[in-house]
Design a binder for these strands. Sequence first.
DNA 1: ACCTGAACACCGTTCAAGT
DNA 2: ACCTGAACACCGTTCAAGT
Lengths: 175, 175
Amino acid sequence: MSPLRADAQRNYDAVVSAARAAFAANGTQSSLDDIAEQAGVGNATLYRHFPTRDSLIVETLRLPLAELAAVARELGDSTDPRAALREWVVQLAAALADWNGLADAVAASLTDEGSALRLACQPLQLATFKLLTRAQDASGARRDLTAEELFDLTLAVAWRGGTSRYADLLFDTLN
Amino acid sequence: MSPLRADAQRNYDAVVSAARAAFAANGTQSSLDDIAEQAGVGNATLYRHFPTRDSLIVETLRLPLAELAAVARELGDSTDPRAALREWVVQLAAALADWNGLADAVAASLTDEGSALRLACQPLQLATFKLLTRAQDASGARRDLTAEELFDLTLAVAWRGGTSRYADLLFDTLN
DNA sequence: ACCTGAACACCGTTCAAGT
DNA sequence: ACCTGAACACCGTTCAAGT
C-alpha cells in the first residue's frame, strides 16, 4: 500500500499504457516482452509489477470495468427490469469482446482460484445476478436460468464477437 | 495420391495415434514436439506429414466427423424436423466440445481461407443449413436465423463445455 | 528499492545431412 | 523418398548483478 518510488510509478504507468495499446492492436495474448520493450522497460520490471498476465489485463481494464459498474447501477433503477436485463447483456457482451482473446482470458480465470481477473469480474457476475433476479421477479425472464449460466452464455457471445445480434438472440432465450 | 512407403505409413499412423491421445489428454494445443516424441518419430517427420496443426487435427477427427455425417443423414429423414434440429445442435455441440481447445481451433479456422480444418467442417455447416431449413419450412424454427449464425452459436456452446443444458437453451432461441 | 540484461527451458518451424 | 537431430527465432519466467 505504500506509494511507489517516482521512477517505479513512471515505469508502471508506461507498462500499462503499452499493454493497453498492444491488447487493443493484437489481443490479450500479445508478447509480454514486446510490451516491456514498447514501454522502454526491462522485461523483468514488467514481471515485478505484474506477476501474471491476468494481473496486467485487470489493470488495463480498470476504466471499462468502472463504466460497466456505472451501467449496472443505472439499469438497477430502471422501471423496466426486462429491458434493463437485455441492455446489460448487450453491453456486457460488447465490453468482453472489445479485445481479442479477452473472453478466453476471462473464461480461463473462472476456474483459476487465485486469478486477479476472476476477482475483478465478480462485480460483473453480481450485477448479472441482481438484474436477472429483478427481471425474473417481474416475470420478465424465465425462472430456470441461473446467473452463472447467463454470465457464461454472455461470455460465449462475446467470444464470437459480442455483436448485439447474438446478444439479442441470447436474450430471446430468456422468455 | 501414391501410397506411402511402408515405414512412412507406420510413422504416419504412429503420429496420428499419439496426437489423438495428446489431444484427448491435454487439448488440441498439445506440444507437437511431444507428440512426435510419443510417436517415436523425429519432429520434422511430423511436419512432413502434417504441415499445419489444423491438418493433424483433421486427421485425428476423421472418425468423429464420419459419425456426425451419419447422424446428419439420419436426422434428415426424421418426420419431426424440429426435434431433428434440436438433436443435431446437441450432438454437434457435444462433438465440438470433446477435446479442450477444439472449439477454438474450429472458430479460428473459419477465418483462415486455406485451413484444412475449415474444409473438414464444411459438411457440418451444410448439414446445419439443411436441418435448419427443413425445420423452418415446417414452422419449427424462426425464419430470421441463418445457418451460419446457428453453427456459430453452437460452436460457442461447445466452447463453454458443450453440455446439453446449454444446447437446449440455445435451441429455445429458435422459437 | 528498484532496474537491467542475460540466462533458462520451452515451443514451432526449417534445414543440412544421412539412409 | 523419407527420416533425423540440430539449428533458429521466439516466448514466459527467473536471477545475478547493478544503481
